[in-house]
Design a protein around this nucleic acid. Structure first.
Lengths: 218, 218
DNA sequence: TGAAATCTGCCACCTGGGTGACAATTGAGC
DNA sequence: GCTCAATTGTCACCCAGGTGGCAGATTTCA
């Protein structure tokens, strides 16, 4: 299980206690869990599907900060002080989320200090991941960035064998390149045998080779 | 006072209680507070000087994550679990820091829940700042990146009137450009009257104009 | 005070990847 | 099954910024 899987790391009883506090919401592709400026009055756990967290930059450019997979928790940072959301969260496919009002979530944490510690860990690791991404986005070229990105995602994705259901546009938006560049590079990695790409199904064929592409700058 | 000024936001008595727990360390330019891999067994408050937090990327490239100014706290993220440091912190000039062993810091937080909340806020805001930087680094061109960076720094820097004592190399390393590019752009911003640059003393002359450069992509 | 190290300013060249454009393919909804 | 929107594939062009190289300015510290 991925270390980012919050729900999976809770004891069964704690998990059901938490989910008992939650309202379930189903979302279709393109629906928002929340958007920039919404009140940050709830915390979410993704039960099924895939979500993306992003901001809109200059000229309408969508910059993806983070993809969320089942079991992961999100919406934590703005919630404690009920500030406006700083990012938008959108369903990449049909999703289900558990929504917990922040007041209840706080009570829950007070009653379960272990969970509170786990969250501290999760936030710290997310800060670390973001810092790492910043470093490689600034220092690497497009090919290495995309390779690193795929390695990272495969480590967190639930069924990497079947492939990641990412569009080229999404890959471009998280790697900070143009859609056409993403297409070109995915094609190249496919030719070299690192990936197995088939219309929207990107699977890693040779993890070693992919890691080698991730580590070189040329 | 900048909202990031941890020490400045503490009550006088709380502040002296905290500093009473600390060992003071003086550093010269180039000294490390800690380096990647060191044990994360202490938390620091910067008392004087300026520090930079960075990682080394491919090909020895230094990517600066964050500049710290007096009053700011750092070393928080790895500490609660005493993990190895994920970043290095180096003095940019003569500095003084207060070093608090993590065990004592934890006791202190338990005794002062207000401070604990403040830290949650600080970590959240740092996550937000990092996310913002990621967005503009991916979406903007070199000129807008450097302009935004200077606006951000001026907002946190103690005496922005006298100018920021940053080298072109440091600006390059945080904006993710080449040193020569930083020089070229600083020269341009100087010509246009947005900055007043004089050998290592970069002062903002026209904040409005600089913000305009930060907001355009061309 | 003087030598060495660091920092700044410039320049010419070159390339990675941005840009726009369009056709082919696929999947989703009717 | 059919239609339409979304996604993918590919191409030609071009420019922002990377690269290397060097001279002059400034600081540091012996």
């Amino acid at each position: 299980m991925a270390t980012t899987d919050f729900l999976g790391r809770l004891d069964g009883s704690v998990r059901s206690a938490l989910l008992g506090q939650a309202r379930r919401r189903k979302l279709r592709k393109g629906d928002f869990v929340y958007r920039v400026g919404d009140p940050g009055d709830a915390v979410y756990v993704l039960l099924a599907g895939r979500i993306k967290t992003y901001k809109i930059a200059l000229r309408g450019r969508e910059v993806i900060l983070w993809f969320g997979f089942p079991g992961e928790v999100f919406g934590l940072v703005e919630s404690p002080h009920d500030r406006a959301r700083m990012v938008s969260v959108e369903a990449c496919e049909a999703c289900e989320v558990a929504e917990i009002p922040v007041a209840r979530f706080r009570e829950f944490l007070a009653a379960h200090p272990v969970v509170s510690q786990l969250l501290t860990q999760i936030i710290a690791s997310r800060l670390g991941m973001l810092a790492n991404r910043l470093v490689y986005l600034l220092a690497d070229n497009a090919e290495a960035r995309i390779a690193k990105l795929l390695v990272d995602l495969a480590a967190r994705s639930p069924g990497p064998a079947q492939g990641l259901g990412l569009t080229h546009q999404e890959i471009a938006n998280i790697a900070g390149v143009q859609r056409q560049t993403a297409t070109r590079i995915l094609g190249r990695l496919n030719e070299h045998g690192a990936l197995a790409v088939r219309y929207g199904r990107i699977a890693i064929r040779d993890r070693e080779l992919l890691a080698r592409f991730a580590a070189r700058h040329a």
